[in-house]
Nucleic acid binder design. Structure first.
Lengths: 268, 268
DNA sequence: ACCGCTTTCACTCGATAATTCACAAAAGTG
DNA sequence: CACTTTTGTGAATTATCGAGTGAAAGCGGT
C-alpha cells in the first residue's frame, strides 16, 4: 500500500460514484464539495485536482443528478447535498432502473423455461451458487433433499426451505450438527433431519441437493484444504435438470436408496 | 419512430444492463440468452449481433456478475438466469455499492454542516426540490410553514410533515383545498390549516416554505401556463438558510405578519 | 493426418472522455 | 479610468477504452 490512509474513503467514494455513471470529474468534484460543504470553482479545483475550467461542466452533470445546488453569483458557489440525501437519491435512481429492467426482461423471457436439460451446468461464485439453490428450492413442489456444510446454510437458504415446507413439500436436511438441527427444527418444524451419508468434513464438499427428483445440484469448495485458511473458500457447483439428466439420475439413485433405509451409514 | 416495436423491450433491457456497468457485448449477449433460455455461441451471435468470436469474452464478463452458467461441452452452451433472479442479483449488487458509498461519504462529511448562509441557492428538477423540502422539514424543531399547490403535496412530503409534528413542531399548511385538508387532518391532527395568502392558482407558483424561521424555500413551475399541458410542468426552486439570509428575512416578514392576522386575505 | 468447427487471443480503429489551451467577460485595484 | 486578476465558456488536443476484425490454436470426427 502506498496510498495515504486519509484519502482512502475519498477514493472509495469517487470509485462508487463513477460506477453509478458519473464522469471522473463529476465524481471528484462532488466528493470535494462533500468535504467542503460549499465552495467556488477555484476551491473545488484545489481540493479535487479537477482543472478549474472543467468544474463547471462537472457541476452541470451533478445538477442533472440533483446532487448539487448552485448560487448564481460571481463567483458561482456550489453546494453538495448531504450524504444521507445522496444515498436516497441513488436509491431511487437504482429502483427506477431496476424496474425498467425487470419490465423489459419479463417481456422478453419465454413464458416457460425449458425444463428438461441434457447437460450439466456450472456456476462459479458462492453467491451465484446460493442464488441457484434458492431458485431451485423455490420451485419445489414435493420434496427437497439438501445436504450441506453448516457454513453454507445461511439465513436466506433456511428462508427458502421454510417457504417450500409451507407449500407442503417434504424437507430432508442433512449434514448439520445437532445444535444447528435444533435451531432449524424451530424454524421449520416439518423438516426431517438425516445423518450425513458419508464422512462429510475434511472433504472439499459444499452442498448437495435434489428437488422433486428432477433437479440436482452439487458444489465443492475450491482453494483446497491445504491452502491458507484466510480467504473464505470459494465455491463452485454443477447442476442439472430433467428426469433423464445424468446428474439427476445419479443423485436420485443415491438419495432414494439411502433415505429409504433407516440405517444409512453402514452400507456400501 | 423507426424501431420495430417488438424490439423495444430488448433495447430497454440492453440499455439498463449497460448502465449497470456491462459492456454492450455482454448486455446484448445476456438479452439474447434470456430470449433463448439456452444456446451456443453461434446461437447467441445470431440473435444478438455480437461477433461470434467475442461471445466468449462477454460470457466471461457475465459469469463475473453471476448472470450465466455454462456447460463445459463442445460447443459450449450458455444458460441465462431467470429475470427474477437477475433483478435480485442487481439489487444485492446495488445495495453493496450504496453501502460502500455511504460509509465513505460519512467519513468525509464534516461533522456539522455550515448553517448560516449568505446567498440563495437554486435547485432544478421536481424530484430534487422535493428532496430539499423533505430534508428541511426533517430539520424542523419548532415550526414548519408550508404552502403548496396540491400536486406537489405528495405522500413523502406528508410523511415528513407528520414526522415533524411528532417531534412537537407546529405545522402550518396552506394552499390546499378543503377536501385535501380533511385528508391531511387525519394524518396529522396537529397541523393547522390556513387559507392561501393570495390567489394561488393561475400563477406559476409551486411551493413556499419556512422552517423554524431560519430556512426558507420558494419554487415555481416552469414551462409556462400557455405551454402544452402534456408534460408535467418542471419545477425550479431557490432556498436560503440562516437568520440573516435575505430570502429568509423576506419570507419571515411575510409569514409572521400574515399568520398572526386572523383575516389574512384582505390586506396589502 | 486431415478438415471443419469452436475457441482463444492479439491487434486496429474509432468514439468518448479526460485534459489542455485560448479568449472574452467581469470584477477588483491603484 | 486604465490595468490586472479572476471567472466562465468554448474549442482543440490528447488519452483511454471498448467495439470490431482476423489470425492462430485447440478439438472432434472421418
Amino acid at each position: 500500500m502506498e496510498t495515504d490512509p486519509d484519502e482512502e474513503p475519498r477514493f472509495a467514494a469517487i470509485q462508487q460514484l463513477e460506477r453509478f455513471g458519473l464522469s471522473t470529474y463529476a465524481a471528484r468534484t462532488f466528493v470535494a464539495l462533500v468535504v467542503l460543504g460549499t465552495g467556488t470553482a477555484k476551491d473545488v479545483s484545489r481540493v479535487s485536482e479537477v482543472p478549474r475550467t472543467r468544474v463547471y461542466d462537472a457541476i452541470e452533470e451533478l445538477q442533472g443528478f440533483g446532487l448539487v445546488d448552485v448560487q448564481q453569483s460571481s463567483p458561482k458557489e456550489f453546494w453538495a447535498i448531504s450524504a444521507e440525501t445522496t444515498v436516497g437519491t441513488f436509491e431511487r435512481e437504482m429502483d427506477e432502473r431496476l424496474s425498467i429492467l425487470v419490465r423489459a426482461l419479463d417481456e422478453l423471457e419465454p413464458v416457460e423455461r425449458p425444463e428438461e436439460q441434457r447437460g450439466v451446468w456450472t456456476v462459479d461464485s458462492r453467491s451465484s451458487v446460493t442464488d441457484r439453490v434458492i431458485e431451485f428450492i423455490g420451485e419445489a413442489e414435493e420434496e427437497v433433499v439438501y445436504m450441506t456444510v453448516e457454513d453454507l446454510l445461511t439465513e436466506d437458504v433456511v428462508e427458502a426451505l421454510r417457504g417450500a415446507a409451507e407449500r407442503d413439500a417434504t424437507i430432508h436436511l442433512g449434514g448439520v450438527s445437532s445444535e444447528v438441527q435444533g435451531r432449524i427444527q424451530e424454524d421449520i418444524p416439518d423438516a426431517e433431519m438425516f445423518e450425513s451419508l458419508w464422512v462429510w468434513s475434511d472433504t472439499p464438499a459444499g452442498r448437495l441437493m435434489m428437488v422433486d427428483g428432477r433437479r440436482t445440484l452439487v458444489s465443492v469448495l475450491v482453494n483446497g484444504i491445504d491452502d491458507a485458511p484466510t480467504e473464505p473458500r470459494a465455491e463452485t457447483a454443477v447442476w442439472g435438470a430433467g428426469e433423464t439428466n445424468s446428474l439427476v439420475v445419479v443423485l436420485r439413485a443415491i438419495f432414494t436408496h439411502r433415505l429409504e433405509d433407516d440405517d444409512p451409514l453402514d452400507e456400501q
